[in-house]
Simulated assay, not measured.
Amino acid sequence: MIRAEEILHPRPEGLYCPLGDFFIDPIRPVERALITHAHADHARAGHGKVLASRQTLEIMAIRYGEDFARETQAAEGEIALGDVSASFHPAGHILGSCQIRLLPKSGPRIVVSGDYSRRPNPVCAPFTPLECEVFITEATFGLPVFRHPDPAFEIAKLLRSMEEFPDRHHLIGGYALGKTQRLIALLRAAGYDAPIGLHGALIRLCQYHISQGIDLGHLVRVDDPSGPRLVIAPPSAFSTPWVQRFKDPVIGYASGWMGIRARARQRRVELPLVISDHVDWPELTGTLQEIAPQEVWVTHGTEDGVLRWCALNQLPAKPLRLVGYEDEPE
């Protein structure tokens, strides 16, 4: 029987499948790419052919232009690619995000999870556990110290701050794709029905989510302090003159990394909100126990912690040592 390493292995461009002659989430332009989701550290422009979920393709077109690839194909069902079939399944990370399961004609089934989350997310389909012999997991928060709180608790913290400081704008940093829309949906679920201000860079992707049937309520583009008291902006906006238009704002930032106080201080964040679209330590290890693969491959993150856990649980594991994957570029 063919070994897993012969089905999929790392190359400088990314994970490569010689049986189908394609890459998964390549960081350099390639002839054929399968894309798990549309964050810019996984989805690059310039490939020859791109296979991804319909929503991922549409978001890539918004971000990069309609000609981001020479040819595109929306993933539906099992797709034959040479001597392997690929299928796409929800990852629970952002809208359109998918795990990719590879089914060779002979050999182990491999699931490339991409970035994934096990928390309920109102703006995307939930993670689907898949049977497989090899499971490739991210390790963004792959240490026992990372235990994310309930997002509803963090939203309540934001609303309390707005009550405590009613005369100060609350400017909350959130990535344009996924985090912004999830923040808005969480606020609406908590009963906040007032208009929410948006930095101009966030408008188009929010409009796309609305077009996909996701109710985000009343949103207003904000260019000055005359708009809503609650404003969401990309993190990069806080280092531009845009933020200087607001007098003494409360600066917040929504990220799993806000659980590290030093990171919050580094960014001069007064209101850190620990809201992540990645699995934390209990969710990561719980997923491995639930899926029960024969082998785990670990990528982009603190791989050593996950490898140690696997060793203690007698689960064969190895690091992929892929480079080029970071947080969503701003």
Rank of each mutant, 00 (worst) to 15 (best):
262 A>L: 14
117 S>R: 10
30 V>Q: 11
144 P>W: 00
316 P>I: 07
4 A>G: 01
152 A>W: 01
237 A>I: 15
107 G>F: 02
195 P>W: 01
254 A>Y: 02
299 T>K: 09
272 P>D: 05
285 T>Q: 04
248 D>Y: 06
225 P>K: 03
293 P>D: 05
129 P>G: 10
153 F>S: 14
13 E>N: 07
327 D>I: 08
71 E>G: 03
102 L>G: 12
319 P>R: 06
234 P>T: 11
37 H>K: 06
283 E>W: 03
184 I>K: 04
255 S>T: 13
239 S>P: 01
115 D>K: 05
132 C>K: 13
125 A>M: 09
133 E>R: 10
129 P>L: 08
7 I>E: 04
62 I>N: 04
136 I>F: 08
106 S>N: 14
199 H>W: 11
41 D>G: 08
212 Q>P: 00
146 F>S: 03
137 T>V: 15
239 S>M: 07
201 A>D: 15
213 G>S: 03
19 L>E: 07
301 G>T: 03
172 I>N: 09
118 R>N: 11
330 E>P: 00
26 P>Y: 08
163 E>W: 06
78 E>I: 00
285 T>W: 01
163 E>Y: 01
50 V>E: 11
105 K>G: 15
44 R>F: 02
42 H>Q: 14
12 P>A: 11
110 I>P: 08
167 D>R: 14
319 P>E: 00
35 I>R: 07
23 F>W: 15
307 L>K: 05
163 E>A: 13
229 R>V: 00
135 F>M: 12
